[in-house]
Nucleic acid binder design. Sequence first.
DNA 1: TCATAAGACGGACTGTAGTCCGCTAAAGAC
DNA 2: GTCTTTAGCGGACTACAGTCCGTCTTATGA
Lengths: 191, 191
Amino acid sequence: MGEPRPERADARRNRLRVLEAAERLFTERGVKNVSLDAIAAEAGVGKGTVFRRFGDRAGLAVALLDEREQELQAKIISGPPPLGPGAPPVVRVMAFLDAYLDLLDRHVALFMDSENASDGARYRIGSYHLWHRHLSHLIEAARPELDADYTAHVLLAPLAADLHNALREQGYDLTRLKTGLQAVATSLLPA
Amino acid sequence: MGEPRPERADARRNRLRVLEAAERLFTERGVKNVSLDAIAAEAGVGKGTVFRRFGDRAGLAVALLDEREQELQAKIISGPPPLGPGAPPVVRVMAFLDAYLDLLDRHVALFMDSENASDGARYRIGSYHLWHRHLSHLIEAARPELDADYTAHVLLAPLAADLHNALREQGYDLTRLKTGLQAVATSLLPA
DNA sequence: TCATAAGACGGACTGTAGTCCGCTAAAGAC
DNA sequence: GTCTTTAGCGGACTACAGTCCGTCTTATGA
């Protein structure tokens, strides 16, 4: 376990350039119409730099989502109830699902990229673990007889970006998804 | 709506060759270590032929899964209860989840391929619609006050191949997944 | 049996993700 | 300021998915 050295100046500069370029191109042309070559070019760096930094396409998407997700994470960990601590478990679960759906809906394309990666990228990234731990604790508190760890995965499954996107394209509106998921959660965790 | 012409002889021969080659290579080397070039070569046909037939990698996986899925579909539509008609809705839901998890577990890699396709391939293919309609009807019968259509999607979400794979790799055994999902279904659709 | 058109064939071609490695620049020691 | 170490750089390279289109095969019906 050595000391993690501080980020080198050129590395930091390039990291910010890439993120900026990615954000700009994604907004301009739509997430899936932008190649990593294009991002590297726009950022004025080599392709290798992008990949060394972010690993792959999914990693870049994760990095872009990070800020937004951290906002929600902060509210959950230390914000006011019902998202933050203080409210009864069931209420906190509802609040989380609602907030996550808002976030997801605002950034579907990016979430799809971040979850795709052909392997189970979604389940390996830090934020998924955080959401999972959060739900798992609340479920454990509300219904100790359930397998909380697994049930948390079940509650997160309908938040998959692919499904969300498919349903929205089918004409579902956000309210319907929220209401439906609330109803499921209510059945699962009766007050 | 013109008559669909019968499949041409060479087309049929090549289709079978490709499926056979794909199955052989997938078993030999593992699904994700096989390129479509390799399958085309093994089958002794051109690459274009593979793509014209199956559209893309996901389409080929779907075709290979088709037979197995049709078996389950037949049991659901006209087999004996509890999978087939006759048993109470809740019981049929349980039976379905159980049977699907068995199928999924036996062919995870193939399912992952068939569901990936970078867009929401899973939600567009015929068999998903069938599972969805089935669950939707049963939910409607058991809990008419729920949004059956959406709730069916929610119940199918934890059956995503990616998640299944990730949990199995985390050390979950199949029984735990089955039990956990049964418990969720029980809460959702009380007898 | 032959002519013809519908359709399938196959491989060259394009675009993209991701890897590799020789080169360059930053940071710290003196 | 210069030397040395170490991390970072970048673009050529590989491999694969998916497209395109000129050529060839099959089915049909006269």
